[in-house]
Design a binder for these strands. Structure first.
Length: 845
DNA sequence: TTGGTGACTTAGCAACCGACTC
DNA sequence: GAGTCGGTTGCTAAGTCACCAA
């Protein structure tokens, strides 16, 4: 993009949020209003500075310039250096002016001092503006490294306050060095270089900050941070009414809804073709809430809506679908531009500064309003989830950090400074009264530390698990019913990886875990089998027929005795008591730790035993996926069979048949050349599953494909001829071609089963042998892939990988087996587990 | 001991995205 | 360049568990 006119580049910088601008104006008491075209650039600096983001004008300018000129120059490290040299003075000037202003502002009485401080700050900003202008202009009018060097030199000798140049390509000429005393020049250079170096070091430190190598002896576990700065949360844009012609109907009549009720109708309309709209509870809850909204915001054309079955949301649904299509058909450039604009708006919320380090925020977007999509038989599904306003949101931020302003009108519910928690914002949602939180991203130091601690705790359990198991096995016969129930529950938690199973309320889906199992969920199957059948978390069915110790079987029979189906199986045990008991063995031990412990330990064990030492990468990956799948099955991590699964399997089967067919033809070619190959075992055996029927099916498929190809080619050729003003080929040409194809397949059919059924082209036997070898490898790998896919169609591998498998197991295994870790960890997982990347190949869980 | 509250992790699904094929 | 497909990411519901007051 270098060389673009300044205007268009500046125009591409998205506008600021109004409140940030006002912030700044407030700071300057209206004495200075940016008017030139670079105000956008400077606003970014002001916004971040105003929001107390620990401003570094260099970073801001660098970002802005990068955004302005696109990617071309990003790779030019000289440019980075140049920017670093330019901006250090400016940065310091702004910082000191701001500090002074804060100081005198705090006293309140010294009007004159405050005025001077404001002036200082304004001057610093004006300098910033000139620098920004020069930088942007220089960069956009520059395309070669040589020119950049000239500018670098110019900027070094001029200092930050030089006059702005013109905004055309002449700019480079305009920034020629001005004479200055050598000593001062050297001094400036040294200071700038030192500051730039420091800055670079800071950036590098930020990029490679390894919290897992730091000692946090100065902090007890309860303090999560010392300083915290952020820009709050991002509220979704307000509702935009639909075009006038798009209206729901009631009893066949269009309904003129005001925006408040139209928005709610739209929530439902969008789900019209989803299973939700077929759900009676969902529909009832939605309609009850819709009626409440209609009472406040009734149709403007007087229609009275009272019956759900007379509502027709289809016009709205069709409009939404059309809009989706429109969005889909946008060009790549349009999509990119839209995304860039969205990113720009959201950028201030995506990061925070925790103890001075830049960290990514996870879910900084406030959940938009909609209909509650509870899972399973949730009694409240379909209820209206209200729009969250700033008045609903509490912000948690450092004491000294400036309080951000919401991006929509309104004020925060509360601003707190609680450094014993990790959330940046929270609110209570209206449907279930649950708290919702904004936390740091999964790759942040806080989440990473907590993750690592979780796995370390699970590893610590190794030291205690023998004692615990011995105790609960003993207590299976305990005369105290409570202890016997507890021991049995622990047996299930340990052996079957069941969840703890807290009590649930009436207004939630009826799901259970270990402690909340009811008699109906466990059936006795003599002599010693138990059948578990219940809905667990997320209403996912847990079904397991499992052979248990005789004593466990006996206990369940006793616990069920004289009870109704819907009575609690463990009526003397709850999660609280169970966890308190576990704490007596090990600090921090709870039922949940057993799941992590058993998942990781099983995984490690399966990898150790199942990885083929001399296998191919694919074979090793299969062993890994197998181990991963076993853990996912243990933890009951299910997923819906992908819609395209059967289709994709059938394609794979077809491809495999093709590979085998190719092999058969190669074999036959060998036989045709030299019949003694027939006696070699390697070539004598026919391909498995490739009987006459399979060959016939395959040849039919190939024939159909060849004919289709010929038809397409014929059509394309004719179009080309017509475009050139030539006469198109006659239909007979196509017919002749198809005839040829059919003849070829007829020949193949006739020769089927004989060595004539071979390749047409003659090749030396060594080449054919080589080709068979390659095909064998290909078939083997492909079969493994197919098996893997089929076995995993109902199992979600990602949940265990993200939550239960110590990442160090994976990393060490990859190192020991020469498998690139990228094959197993996506970008997100690599970011989530940086602390695991340095383990030795022989590390074990 | 119990029940409620608050903070955090775990979970499946849908939308998105990028590689691949034609 | 368009269409397909499968993996990845974002979203938010649904768990676990500590803590506190009664």
């Amino acid at each position: 993009m270098a060389g673009d006119p300044t205007g268009s580049l500046i125009a591409s910088i998205p506008k600021l949020n109004a409140h940030n601008h006002q912030d700044w104006k407030f700071a300057l008491e209206g004495e200075w209003e940016p008017t030139d075209e670079l105000s956008g650039v400077l606003s970014r600096c002001r916004m971040l500075y105003g929001a107390g983001m620990g401003v570094n004008a260099l970073t801001v300018l660098t970002d802005v310039v990068k955004e302005s000129v696109g990617v071309t120059w990003k790779e030019d490290s000289r440019m980075e250096e140049m920017l670093a040299l330019v901006d250090t003075d400016l940065c310091q000037a702004i910082q000191s002016a701001k500090e002074e202003m804060d100081r005198v502002g705090g006293k309140g009485a010294d009007v004159e001092a405050a005025r001077k401080a404001r002036e200082k700050l304004r001057d610093a900003l004006m300098a910033s503006r000139e620098d920004a202008r020069r930088l942007v202009e220089a960069v956009i009018t520059t395309s070669s490294p040589q020119e950049l060097l000239i500018i670098e030199h110019d900027l070094n000798t001029d200092g930050p306050n030089v006059q702005a140049s013109t905004k055309t390509a002449d700019a480079v000429d305009d920034v020629k060095p001005k004479k200055r005393g050598v000593k001062k020049e050297e001094k400036d250079d040294d200071a700038k270089k030192a500051a730039a170096k420091k800055k670079k070091e800071e950036e590098e430190e930020e990029a490679t900050y390894k919290w897992w190598e730091q000692q946090n002896a100065d902090r007890d576990g309860s303090m999560k941070w010392m300083t915290l700065q952020h820009n709050g949360v991002y509220f979704p844009p307000p509702y935009e009414p639909l075009p006038k012609h798009v209206k729901m109907k009631y009893n066949g009549e269009p309904v003129d809804l005001p925006p408040e009720s139209e928005e709610v109708a739209g929530f439902y309309a969008a789900l019209l073709e989803s299973p939700h709209a077929q759900d009676a509870v969902f529909n009832k809850n939605f309609f009850d809430d819709f009626l409440k909204v209609l009472k406040k915001s009734p149709p403007r054309n007087g229609i009275k809506i009272t019956r759900f079955e007379l509502c027709d949301f289809r016009p709205m649904y069709e409009y939404f679908e059309a809009e989706k299509e429109k969005k889909k058909s946008m060009t790549a450039a349009e999509k990119k531009a839209a995304k860039a604009a969205k990113d720009e708006l959201e950028a201030p919320y995506a990061f925070c500064y925790l103890d001075g380090r830049k960290e990514k925020v996870g879910n900084f977007r406030i959940e938009p309003p909609g209909l509650f999509r509870g899972r399973g038989d949730h009694p409240k599904k379909g209820a209206l989830k209200l729009r969250v306003r700033p008045e609903d949101v509490t912000i948690n931020i450092g004491k000294d950090a400036p309080v951000p302003k919401p991006n929509v009108p309104g004020n925060w519910k509360e601003v707190v400074h609680d450094n014993t928690v990790t959330w940046l914002a929270n609110w209570v949602e209206n449907v279930n009264g649950n708290y919702k939180y904004v936390f740091l991203a999964a790759g942040s130091s806080l989440k990473g530390q907590s993750d690592m601690q979780k796995f370390e705790k699970a590893r610590e359990l190794k030291k205690h698990v023998d004692t615990i198991r011995a105790d609960y096995n003993r207590d299976l016969k305990n005369k105290q019913m409570m202890e016997r129930q507890r021991a049995t529950a622990m047996y299930f938690i340990d052996k079957l990886a069941l969840r703890a199973g807290n009590e649930k309320g009436e207004d939630e889906a009826d799901t259970v875990g270990c402690c909340s199992l009811r008699c109906e969920h466990v059936t006795l199957l003599p002599p010693n089998k138990l059948v578990f059948d219940f809905l667990g978390k997320d209403s996912i069915r847990y079904y397991n027929e499992v052979q248990v110790e005789d004593q466990v079987y006996k206990n369940i029979r006793i616990f069920k005795d004289n009870k109704e189906d819907d009575d609690e199986l463990f009526d003397r045990v709850n999660t609280g008591a169970l966890n308190r008991h576990l704490q007596s063995y090990m600090k921090g031990l709870t039922a949940k730790v057993f799941r992590t412990f058993n998942a990781s330990l099983t995984f490690q064990d399966l990898l150790d035993r199942g990885t083929p030492e001399k296998g191919t990468v694919q074979e090793k990956l299969n062993a890994y996926n197998h181990a991963n799948r076993m853990v996912a099955i243990l933890c009951n991590h299910q997923r819906a069979v992908p819609k395209s699964h059967e289709q994709s399997m059938s394609k794979m089967r077809e491809k495999l048949r093709g590979l085998k067919y190719e092999r058969m033809k190669l074999r036959h070619a060998l036989f045709a050349i030299d019949p003694k190959y027939k006696k070699k075992k390697k070539y004598a055996e026919p391909e498995s599953d490739l009987d006459d029927d399979a060959i016939a099916t395959h040849e039919e498929t190939m024939k159909a494909k060849d004919i289709e190809k010929a038809e397409k080619k014929f059509q394309k050729d004719n179009e080309k001829l017509e475009a050139e003003g030539k006469k198109p080929q006659a239909e007979s040409v196509l017919k002749e071609k198809i005839k040829e194809i059919e003849a070829e397949y007829k020949r193949l059919k006739k020769e089927r089963g004989t060595e004539k059924h071979a390749l047409k082209k003659e090749r030396p036997t060594e080449k054919i042998e080589e080709a068979i070898e390659k095909l064998d490898d290909k078939i083997k790998t492909f079969k493994l892939q197919m098996e893997d896919r089929e076995a995993g169609k109902e199992v979600a591998l990602s949940t265990s990988k993200i939550n239960y498998l110590d990442p160090r197991i994976t990393v060490a295994w990859c190192k020991a087996n020469d498998v690139p870790v990228e094959k197993l960890f996506s970008k997100t997982l690599l970011t989530k587990f940086p602390w695991a990347m340095e383990v030795d190949p022989d590390w074990k869980f």
